[in-house]
Write a protein that binds this DNA or RNA. Sequence first.
DNA 1: CTTGACCTTGAAGTTAGCTTCAAGGTTAGG
DNA 2: CCTAACCTTGAAGCTAACTTCAAGGTCAAG
Lengths: 169, 169
Amino acid sequence: MKIGELAQQSGLTPSRIRFYERIGLLKTVERRPNGYRTYPQQAVMILGLITTAQRAGFTLDEIRTLLPSDLTHWDHAALMEALARKIADIEALQARLAQSRAHLLRLIEDIQERPDDMDCAANAHRVLTNMLADQSEALDVTSGDIRLLDTKDRRQSVSPGHRKKTASR
Amino acid sequence: MKIGELAQQSGLTPSRIRFYERIGLLKTVERRPNGYRTYPQQAVMILGLITTAQRAGFTLDEIRTLLPSDLTHWDHAALMEALARKIADIEALQARLAQSRAHLLRLIEDIQERPDDMDCAANAHRVLTNMLADQSEALDVTSGDIRLLDTKDRRQSVSPGHRKKTASR
DNA sequence: CTTGACCTTGAAGTTAGCTTCAAGGTTAGG
DNA sequence: CCTAACCTTGAAGCTAACTTCAAGGTCAAG
């Protein structure tokens, strides 16, 4: 199958597929005499696997080191270890998020609990001082990093990029 | 106070402080006749506020629109709205994280529950198929974005960058 | 009057994960 | 044969939040 068809079937853009090839993530590709890329059916599954892993919080780098060239020959040990580590990362992040959320809730309360005899300016100072004091206490929660965000419109739904009438710009 | 002292007191690097000025985030700065920047004591608090807000998940852009030039004159309504929105963002992300975590746990179980009569290759295929099926079901959890990650070593603890003996490179 | 720590500037580099662009080759249909 | 839709490449651009670099000015101590 050519790259356009693979793009359709996987829901990714051709540029993204070429990018994955360039960084050594997608290796199941050959060339026709005319230079066109050609992919086996399996490539659809590999791309699905990649995007699923991404959504679970794996970086492309991590995915590359885990993905075997043959989908039936995984490094079982490395895979399980990576999964466990990723879960731990997520849990660390969850802890951080819970902290941030609690922090913000406390802040809202603190702002609203202005003593009747205090003007806004003084209240602002009171809240600020509290907040900066809070902060200096919590300097220990270092967590492993994970990128699980920016989850907006990564997927092309109706395959845009057809250079026909789309003509935006 | 000069920029080096502010850097010490705030725990940020001078370059970062200059950067904040450049993007219009830190405005309380004047110049001495020799061109050196000079800051009021208040600048320490402003920088503390900025990093605290960052750790709560606010982007510098958001912080800039919320930060008043005078720390005692906040846009109360905008601030409360932003705090509420940020909490909602965090909660959306928490939901996503819980999903990802559950997904990974299910995956681990699924891998380990290989039927005795199945070889690794066939098991790999079974697990893969399950996973990609799972994924197509959950296509609705679109969340607002938030950047709350990469929380490793943003702070200079012992003020590196003194061009004395540090001499790395 | 020299040394070294500090300060200045603008420009470019970093990371991740792509997209976009420019300039061109290929192919199927009419 | 022409056109439109596809394909190719390498290079550059994008975002966020900084850092690093190069080239130079300032200042206090010895």
